[in-house]
Each structure stands twice: as structure tokens, then as C-alpha cells.
Design a binder for these strands. Structure first.
Lengths: 213, 213
DNA sequence: CCTTCATTAGTCAAACTTGACTAGTGCCGG
DNA sequence: CCGGCACTAGTCAAGTTTGACTAATGAAGG
């Protein structure tokens, strides 16, 4: 699954209606350029592609007052909402060794109800356990470990990552169960996007920064 | 950096001369299809592209006795060897939150001398420390944490991953320092690729498996 | 003997990603 | 008062990845 689609759908959905540059800023606000491939090109491509596929509707808009080319605003369709929740549930549930997907899921999990988020995270823990069993069976077969030499370190690294990832997830489950954060249907949601004109307090200036020389 | 190039260069180099299908099998032997995007299409593309760029030389070969289309064999050029070591050193050193790159580095680290591998891993630990300091400064600014709401969980997840990854790396350093594995210049190297015709004991049958229905 | 099916080896179009580039506006220093 | 720079908003070509497809051989089974 492409993490870009999930992120872009999530961002557009929280705005109700958003243009590409807004989405770009939201993703930077979430730090997504640090832990995923959320680059301008990918974002604009995803918007266009999803509009073509009916997950978004595009509205042509007059050029902004602040200069720059005319913008296109997007809105999530019903089909897009369905796809969004499908991707979000998958991101939280499945262990595919792609931490960026899980991160996106964390950033958007509050769009679900608390109980569902908890259930998905529990399923994730089971999924990690399953993966762990499968690989340790495949890669430590009858002739014992050690046959693999240094190649075995790769497996050990992944198993270690899976284990510590599971431990962290259990901590998250505890925090959520303890009442942390505001989930869907629990009143005023946390504002996870930037309002029009609001500046990003966490801007790291990774993009568009002219060469410092 | 593309992990495919590193993996393909490493595989071809260990064979001396290899065709695409051999590389494909090596990567499956290393489990690369589990933890990276090492799919047939990517592998063949990387071979062709690197041949075009002078990192590999291509030799047309008569069709194999075992059927199938005519094969192309590749050899790493001097320029390719340089690029290989550049990528390998980078994979072991830099912390870019892409576990697949590091895994590839682990699988190929024995092409370096023991002391250099240790030095690179130490640099990696420093690089993680540096990254950690940077993000905790950026994302926990004057107004304190908690301002971020559930978005803060993303950062916490990454910091946790970095910390446990560093701990694992320290363990690896200890093992290597203690004499584990055979590095470059230490005699008969570990056979990390499959000989012609040898079957892969760890085949998981992820590729080419006909639909089970 | 003939059909089926796995294995060998690879191609290809469509989709996605990347990094560099464009272009209009406003602000600020000299 | 104007030259350059930063910001807004986005495009584009080149490169990469994906998943499905092709095509030849040989062994196994009926």
C-alpha cells in the first residue's frame, strides 16, 4: 500500500476541502517528510491520480491572493472515504515491516473510534506474533542456526525490531485505554492540520530552502 | 540511496559473473524479498541501468541448457566496485530510518575489513544519537510536549525505534569485536550466494507460485 | 505419447517517485 | 525605486517500481 494515498486522503479529509499546497504543509506539520516519501511531486501526483479514479473531486479555483499559479481544490468523495478507512485500518493492523505506513496510521488513528483503534492495534500485535513465528521457522530450520553465518544477523535484526515494535505498541494500547487523546465521536477533535495562513511551528525547512552556500 | 543497487552489486560481485536469475535467487536466499523491494522487475532494471552507466559490463550468452530465454551475464567494473563500497559504507553508517538499507549493509558487511565495519557501525551509533537530538529539539519546542496530541506518538515511535536500533547495533559491535564472522582478508569467506544449480534451502515460494485457488 | 505443470529467464506497460525547474507576488535593504 | 530574495503553488522529464505477462524446456503422470 502506498503511504502517500493514506496521508493525502487523511489531510484533505480533515480540511473538508484543500489544495495541494495545504496538504503539503500538513504533511510537513506531521513530520511526514522525515519518515516517509512525502515530497511535493508525490503529493500532487497522488491528488491527480485519485481525482482521476474518483476518490477525490477537483474544483478549479481562482489564483490565490498570495501569488502563485491557480490552485486546484480537492474534496474526498464517498468512495474516497471508503478507501481512506480501508487504508487506515490496514496501516494500523498489518505488520509489513514498513514503519512509515504505521506512522501514518498513528497520525490518523483518531479518525476511528477508540474501541476500533484498540481492536486494530491488538490485531497488529497478533500479526507481529504470527510473522515472528513464520520467519523463525523458515530461517532457523532443522540444521540449526549458525548455518546462516552473518546473514543470520539480518533475521535477528528484524526479529528484534518486531519485538521492540510490539512492546511499544502495547504501551500505546495502554495509553489509549487509559483515556489518552480524543477519538471520533468524543467531542472536539484535536486539530491536526494547519488553518489557512497559520504557520508551521515545526517547520524544519527541508523543502525549498535555497542553498546555504 | 536505492537498496536494489547495493544488493545487486553485492550479489554480482560475489559471483564474479552472474545473470539476472542468479541474482534473483541470491536475494531470495538473503530473504531480501521479505524486507526490501527486491522484485524481479526491479532487479533486471537495476542490472540494465547500471550496465548503461558503466557500473557493470554485460556479456550476451547462449541460452541456458535448462530452457528459457537467452541470458545476459554481468560483471562488476572498477567503477562499479567503487560505487558498491560507497553504497555499502553509507548503508552501514547513516541512520535514515530505512531498515531495508541497513539490512542490506548487514548482509554485505563482510566484504569490508573487520576494523572498518566496526568503525562504520560506531559512526552509525553517533549518527543515531545526532538524529535523536535533532528531532527531540525540533518537535518538543518551548511550549513543551503534549501540544502535539496524538501526533506526538509518531515522534515517540521513531525515537523508540532509534533507541532500540542503537541498542541492537551495540550488541552487533560486541559480537563482531568478539571475533564473530569472517571478514575481508581473514581467509575463506562465508559463502553468501548460491552456487550454480544449488537449491535455496530457505525458499519461501513467494514468487512464481501459481495461484493456490 | 501427450498433456500438464514447474522451472528457467526475462519483458513490458502502467504507475509512482524524484529533483529540478517555472512563474507570479510582495517585501526589504541599499 | 529597484534588484534580489522568499513565499505561494505547481509542472515536468527522467528514473524506478510494480504486477502481470511471455516463452522455452523437461519431467511427471495418466
Amino acid at each position: 500500500m502506498s503511504v502517500i494515498r493514506l496521508l493525502v486522503l487523511g489531510a484533505v479529509r480533515q480540511h473538508g476541502r484543500a489544495h495541494g499546497y495545504q496538504v503539503r504543509n500538513d504533511l510537513e506539520y506531521w513530520g511526514a517528510h522525515e519518515w516517509s516519501n512525502a515530497k511535493p511531486g508525490s503529493i500532487y501526483h497522488a491528488l491527480k491520480q485519485m481525482a482521476k479514479q474518483g476518490l477525490l473531486v477537483a474544483h478549479e479555483t481562482a489564483p490565490s491572493t498570495a501569488g502563485g499559479p491557480p490552485r486546484t481544490e480537492y474534496e474526498v468523495t464517498e468512495q474516497g472515504t471508503e478507501e481512506y478507512f480501508r487504508l487506515l485500518r490496514e496501516a494500523l493492523t498489518s505488520y509489513d515491516q514498513k514503519p512509515d505506513v504505521f506512522s501514518a496510521g498513528l497520525g490518523l488513528m483518531v479518525d476511528l473510534e477508540r474501541e476500533e483503534a484498540l481492536a486494530l492495534l491488538e490485531r497488529r500485535l497478533a500479526s507481529i506474533e504470527e510473522w515472528r513465528k513464520a520467519v523463525t521457522e523458515y530461517y532457523v530450520p532443522e540444521d540449526g542456526p549458525g548455518q546462516l553465518g552473518h546473514i543470520g544477523e539480518i533475521m535477528d535484526f528484524w526479529v528484534h525490531s518486531a519485538d521492540t515494535g510490539a512492546a511499544w505498541t502495547r504501551g500505546l494500547v495502554t495509553r489509549i485505554r487509559g483515556g489518552a487523546y480524543t477519538f471520533a465521536g468524543e467531542g472536539e477533535p484535536f486539530v491536526g492540520v494547519l488553518a489557512e495562513g497559520e504557520e508551521n511551528p515545526f517547520a524544519t525547512g527541508q523543502w525549498n530552502t535555497p542553498d546555504l552556500e
